[in-house]
C-alpha cells in the first residue's frame, strides 16, 4: 500500500470507480465539469477546486453541470435517488445549504420514515466545509451539527485521503441520504491509499493514536490539530488517545465510551461553533454514560460562537489550535 495520494485525488478516484461499477451512479453540481455551453475548453474546471477534474472524459453523460439553482438540482438528485439512481450531488460549500435545506431535511431525510419504510433515498451530497481558506463567513462554517440533528441523515467528515475514499464509496453504496463533508484544507494532504475500491463501514471511529492519560474526541481537520497536540504532550509525558469519529451520524459511542472509561479525561475538539455542537453532544453522552470513570471535567475546544472572520489574523485565532487543545488536556488532568 505504498502509493500516496491526496484527499482530492482519493475523492476523484472513489467517484471514478463507483461510476464504473454501477451505471446508476451519476454526479451533478455547479461547475463540476465546467465550461458547459461555452466555446472554450470542455471540463474547464472539474469543480471549483478541481476535485472532479478528468471524470467527464471517462464517464460521458454521467456528470451533469447544473444551473446555479441549489434547490432544484439538490432536489433533483433526491428525486432521482427515490427512483433508483445513486446520484452524488455537489453542493460546493456546505454554507449554501440554506437555499436548499428543505429538500435535504424535509424531503430526503424523512422519506423513509414518513413513507413507512417504503422509500429509499440513496443520495450523497458532497460539500466543502471548514475554515482556514480565507473564504470568510459564508464559505467557511463547519455546519456538521445542523445535519447530525436531523434524523434520517448520515453525516460523514473524513480527516485523510484513505478514509475519504472508503467513506465516499460507502456513502454511495449506502441506501440513506449522506451528507459528505470535505474539509477544504485537507484536499492536498497525502496518505497511503489502495488503488483498489474499498468501503469503510459507517459508525466506526478510528483510534488514530493510543494513550492512557486522556482521550481527545474529534473529526475532520481537528484530527490533525489534535495529533499535533498529542505529539507535543507526549514529550511532556502525557499520552493522549486521539479518536477520529469519521462519521458523526451514525456515531461510534462504544469507542468513545471505552476510551473515556480507560483514561477518565475527555477533551472534545470540534471546528463547529460551540452551542449544540458535536463537542457538546459527545460531552453530554460521556457525562451520562461514564460519570463514575471521569477524573476531570470534560473539556470542549471549539471556535468562539462567532461567524468565521475574514482577516487571516482573526481566522487563525478562530480555529482551535494544537496549543489550545494541549491546554485543555492539561486543564482536565489538573482536576
Amino acid at each position: 500500500m505504498a502509493r500516496k495520494i491526496s484527499m482530492r485525488q482519493a475523492i476523484n478516484e472513489a467517484l471514478d470507480q463507483e461510476m464504473a461499477r454501477d451505471p446508476n451512479v451519476i454526479v451533478m453540481g455547479e461547475d463540476i465539469v465546467g465550461g458547459a455551453g461555452g466555446e472554450g475548453e470542455e471540463d474547464a474546471w472539474g469543480g471549483v477546486l478541481g476535485v472532479t477534474k478528468g471524470l467527464h472524459a471517462k464517464h460521458k453523460g454521467k456528470l451533469l453541470d447544473t444551473p446555479l439553482s441549489e434547490s432544484a438540482y439538490i432536489g433533483a438528485a433526491i428525486g432521482a435517488a427515490a427512483c433508483g439512481m445513486r446520484p452524488v450531488a455537489e453542493l460546493m460549500f456546505l454554507d449554501f445549504m440554506g437555499v436548499c435545506f428543505d429538500q435535504i431535511f424535509n424531503q430526503a431525510a424523512k422519506f423513509k420514515y414518513m413513507f413507512g419504510g417504503k422509500a429509499e433515498t440513496p443520495v450523497v451530497i458532497r460539500a466543502m466545509v471548514g475554515a482556514g481558506f480565507r473564504a470568510a463567513a459564508q464559505h467557511s462554517q463547519m455546519l456538521t451539527p445542523l445535519f447530525v440533528h436531523i434524523p434520517g441523515l448520515k453525516v460523514v467528515c473524513p480527516s485523510n485521503a484513505y478514509d475519504a475514499k472508503g467513506l465516499l464509496i460507502q456513502s454511495i453504496r449506502d441506501n440513506d441520504p449522506v451528507i459528505f463533508c470535505e474539509h477544504k484544507n485537507l484536499y492536498g494532504l497525502e496518505t497511503e491509499v489502495p488503488a483498489e475500491s474499498y468501503a469503510i463501514p459507517f459508525g466506526e471511529a478510528n483510534v488514530v493514536r493510543e494513550g492512557k492519560h486522556a482521550t481527545i474526541v474529534t473529526y475532520g481537520m481537528m484530527v490533525n490539530r489534535s495529533m499535533e497536540a498529542a505529539a507535543a504532550l507526549a514529550k511532556q509525558g502525557v499520552e493522549c488517545e486521539v479518536i477520529d469519529l469519521r462519521t458523526l451520524s451514525p456515531i461510534d459511542w462504544d469507542t468513545v465510551i471505552d476510551s473515556a472509561e480507560k483514561t477518565g479525561h475527555v477533551i472534545c475538539v470540534d471546528e463547529a461553533n460551540p452551542r449544540c455542537s458535536i463537542a457538546a453532544d459527545v460531552s453530554a453522552m460521556v457525562s451520562q454514560e461514564c460519570f463514575k470513570a471521569l477524573k476531570g471535567s470534560i473539556q470542549m475546544v471549539t471556535p468562539p460562537h462567532t461567524p468565521v472572520p475574514f482577516s487571516p489574523v482573526l481566522e487563525d485565532l478562530y480555529i482551535p489550535s494544537a496549543d489550545s487543545i494541549a491546554k485543555a488536556v492539561k486543564k482536565s488532568l489538573a482536576h
Binding site: 432536489g75 428525486g79 433508483g84 439512481m85
Partner: peptide, 25 residues
C-alpha cells in the same frame, strides 16, 4: 413508489425538484 406516487407533500412546491430528478432518471 411502486405505483409511481412519490408522495403527497406537506411542503408547498417541494415536489417540483423531485420531479426533475424522476424525469432525469
Amino acid at each position: 413508489l411502486s405505483k409511481g406516487m412519490m408522495g403527497a407533500n406537506g411542503i408547498l412546491g417541494a415536489g417540483a425538484p423531485l420531479v426533475c430528478g424522476a424525469a432525469l432518471a
